[in-house]
Amino acid sequence: MSELKDILEGTTLEEGLRRVAAAYPGQVVFSTSFGQEDQVIADAIWRHDIPVRVFTLDTGRLFEETYELMDLTRARYKKPFEVYFPRPEDVEQYVEEHGFNGFYDSVENRKACCHIRKVLPLRRALQGARIWITGLRAEQSDNRKDTPLLEWDEQYQLYKYNPLIGWEYADVLSYLKDYQVPYNRLHDKGFVSIGCAPCTRAVLTGEHPRAGRWWWEQSQKECGLHTHS
């Protein structure tokens, strides 16, 4: 890990992506939720033809605007990305036990829904990978402020590379503008972090960027995809 960390320190986004792709050919993946940060990384991968497999998780409860962006992005770059869905039998069992919107009833129910719709599909998507690239930034939440550039993910048994961890939100916006990267139009309506439609609202002036996620509960505003060793 120290050797890989050394070759990533001080690199630009493009350089870092190229180096991990070269270090682990065919074993580097990028998970995108089509948020602003992820669009930055996807642009760098596709515009520079860096050999990284790109995938997304479709929970079945996404905003229509997110689906629109998926098609717009595909048309813009003409590059493939894989889509992973939750297993129908898992969703059916959850709805039978908790109802369609049972995630509002308790944190436990919400995390169970996230586990079915996100964590389990992610496990399938990460099979065979050695490096998982994410769009995490330190300032997104208190839970992410100490996240390193490169970390070992015990849960998935691979290295997680967070090339934007030191970026500020202004850096992201500047990149999107400079390279005319398509982004979710909900961002222009006060949505900062965009997840499932029933679980996301716009952020009010002065609120934390993650305040719009699972706004009805007092939690760490995480879904279980990202843990830190």
Rank of each mutant, 00 (worst) to 15 (best):
A112D: 08
L72M: 11
R19W: 13
R47K: 14
D6T: 00
N143K: 14
D153K: 11
A22Y: 02
E9Y: 02
T66N: 13
C223F: 07
H208L: 05
Q157C: 00
V20Y: 13
L225Y: 06
R213F: 04
S229V: 01
G206A: 05
F103C: 00
W216A: 01
P25Y: 04
K79F: 10
P86R: 06
H208E: 07
V192P: 09
R210V: 01
S106V: 04
K177A: 11
R61Y: 08
D178H: 15
D58N: 11
I131H: 07
I194Y: 04
K160C: 09
G195H: 03
G16H: 07
G195K: 09
T227Y: 04
Y169Q: 15
Y77R: 10
Y67E: 01
K221N: 12
Y77M: 12
A211V: 03
F85E: 11
A197D: 02
V91T: 05
C113P: 10
T200K: 10
S31Q: 02
D90K: 07
T147Q: 02
W152I: 00
Y94G: 12
G195S: 05
A138K: 15
Y24D: 00
E3W: 14
L150C: 05
K111Q: 15
L13Y: 04
E207H: 00
D58R: 09
I131S: 07
E65F: 06
V91L: 03
Q39Y: 02
Q218M: 10
G60C: 03
R110F: 00
R19F: 14
I194P: 15
P148E: 01
H228L: 14
S219Y: 12
C113N: 06
Q39N: 06
H228I: 14
D90Q: 06
V83P: 12
D178N: 07
W46L: 09
P148S: 08
G35H: 03
R185F: 08
Q127A: 14
Q218C: 11
R18W: 00
E139I: 04
W46K: 07
G35S: 00
V91A: 03
W152P: 15
E168T: 11
H228M: 14
D146A: 09
G99T: 04
S219D: 14
K5P: 14
D38L: 13
P51F: 13
G195D: 07
L164N: 01
F63R: 10
P209H: 11
L57W: 10
Y169L: 05
D6N: 02
E82L: 13
S33P: 11
Y77D: 09
V107T: 02
E9L: 07
H48Y: 04
D90E: 01
G102C: 04
L136K: 11
R210P: 15
W216Q: 01
P182C: 08
D58Q: 05
Q93E: 13
Y67N: 01
R110L: 01
Q39P: 04
P148L: 01
T11L: 11
H98G: 00
W215D: 00
R144F: 00
V192D: 06
R61V: 00
Q180M: 12
E217H: 14
G212K: 08
G16I: 13
I116N: 06
H228T: 13
F55T: 13
